[in-house]
């Protein structure tokens, strides 16, 4: 069961180093981006530890249920509304940027709204499935996509065109600068996958142990290393123009003696990230769930969670146990 927790960390990391985090970090690559990496790894790991330890004390309860259990109804509802706004916004940003990316790299001539409509419809439909089904979907999509993503990554890593000098230059110059707050915030965002536990803790059984948490900094370091490799060709360019750095990286993927058409490599990573992106929409599921509990308090899902709360309270002889 614990693997589902790490799936969140992994795919959210994969997504965040594609969408907006690199935009911030690369534009600050000479003033603090690189030196913020170790700090972000430390903070991100600590944050994951604290969150998972906190939620471990409330097995089977998501954040909305915990609010309801301890806070007055009006406050719990207000906080849930804040959650809805935050998570829905995040989902919409990801949806929009992915449909934009896919539009640019798959078919620039097609209507951007068509892409957005197709993807939004699919995401909304997927998000309205049960949380358990969303979890199964994560697993299947990650297991299918990850080997191909890694294969493309290693192909890039071992190609002759990778400019190791540029990477060394950025790493060398960057590490000497003190980190800036913007860079630290941006790079800790890579670790934000553990926050999904606020919803998916509902599915965690009471005997769940968060084992293997020491892998979180390693995964984070892996993502930052990828980010660094990606910066190989832009040491002196004015940064901040490349919105989709990763895809441009594939765009520059060397072609074996012009045997491959340059554009050929393009749709592949884009196609792979679409499924990874889609699973992000437990955000919308969160919003959906909270709206449900706010507007229709007698929903079946709600009754189940309330029953779980009462059972727990009975078992432990009152909160906090």
């Amino acid at each position: 069961m614990i693997r589902y927790y790490y799936y969140h960390i992994f795919y959210v990391g994969l997504m965040n180093i594609m969408v907006l985090v690199p935009y911030v970090l690369i534009s600050h690559r000479f003033d603090g981006a690189v030196s913020s990496f170790p700090i972000a790894i430390a903070f991100g790991t600590l944050y994951s530890y604290v969150t998972s330890a906190a939620f471990q004390r409330f097995p089977g309860l998501g954040l909305p249920e915990i609010y309801k259990l301890f806070l007055p109804v009006w406050l719990a509802n207000c906080l849930n509304m804040v959650g809805v706004v935050i998570w829905c916004t995040a989902g919409i940003i990801v949806l929009f940027s992915y449909s934009n990316t896919v539009g640019i790299f798959f078919d620039p001539e097609a209507s951007a709204y068509l892409n957005l409509a197709v993807m939004a419809a699919a995401s909304l439909w997927a998000a309205s499935r049960t949380s358990r089904s969303v979890q199964f979907t994560h697993e299947v999509l990650l297991i299918v996509s990850t080997p191909i993503i890694l294969w493309i990554l290693f192909k890039a890593l071992f190609s002759n065109w990778l400019d190791w000098d540029a990477i060394r230059l950025i790493a060398d110059a960057g590490i000497r600068k003190p980190p800036s707050m913007v860079c630290i915030f941006a790079s800790t965002f890579v670790f934000s996958g553990h926050m999904n536990i606020t919803l998916f803790n509902r599915l965690n059984p009471s005997d769940l142990k968060f084992r293997l948490r020491w892998t979180i900094p390693i995964v984070g370091a892996f993502f930052f290393a990828r980010l660094l490799f990606r910066a190989d060709r832009l040491p002196w360019h004015p940064g901040g123009r490349q919105l989709f750095v990763r895809l441009e990286r594939y765009d520059r993927q060397p072609d074996d003696e012009v045997r491959l058409h340059p554009a050929r490599a393009l749709p592949v990573p884009a196609a792979l990230y679409v499924p990874v992106a889609r699973v992000r929409h437990e955000h919308l599921a969160y919003g959906h769930g909270v709206f449900q509990s706010l507007l229709q308090k007698v929903q079946a899902a709600d009754r189940r969670s309330q029953r779980a709360c009462h059972q727990l309270v009975d078992l432990r002889g009152g909160w906090p146990g």
Partner: peptide, 21 residues
């Protein structure tokens, strides 16, 4: 026919969600 490769990828995603559900 209507959405090209994007449609196929999204369709495949929906198929996986349907099966998982």
């Amino acid at each position: 026919v209507f959405a090209g490769l994007v449609g196929v990828v999204v369709g495949l995603f929906m198929l996986v969600v349907y099966l998982c559900n």
